[in-house]
Amino acid sequence: MKFKVKITVFQKKDVLDPKGETLSSLLKRLNFDKNPVCSVGKYFELELNAKNKEDLDKKLKTICLDVLSNPLIEDYEILSAMEIK
């Protein structure tokens, strides 16, 4: 089975996010909001083969924790994992 997976990685909330702060300042300066709260993260799209959904979940856990994020500073979220042809 082949899956298309969408994943985001963001810094943990208590870790300073200078890119997010810069974006907040910009949106404030452009008068979109008086106090915009922004964070900037990473977005990944993967196409992976797996025996079944359980096998995919196992692979994704390792990929997310070891490759795409550092659990000390970042949290990941699997937005979707859809079977494709």
Partner: peptide, 16 residues
């Protein structure tokens, strides 16, 4: 730090 031979992590400078 990435391989945990030393603790912590190195992040984007505060000033960017």
């Amino acid at each position: 730090t990435e391989i945990n031979l030393l603790p912590g992590a190195l992040l984007l400078n505060k000033s960017s």
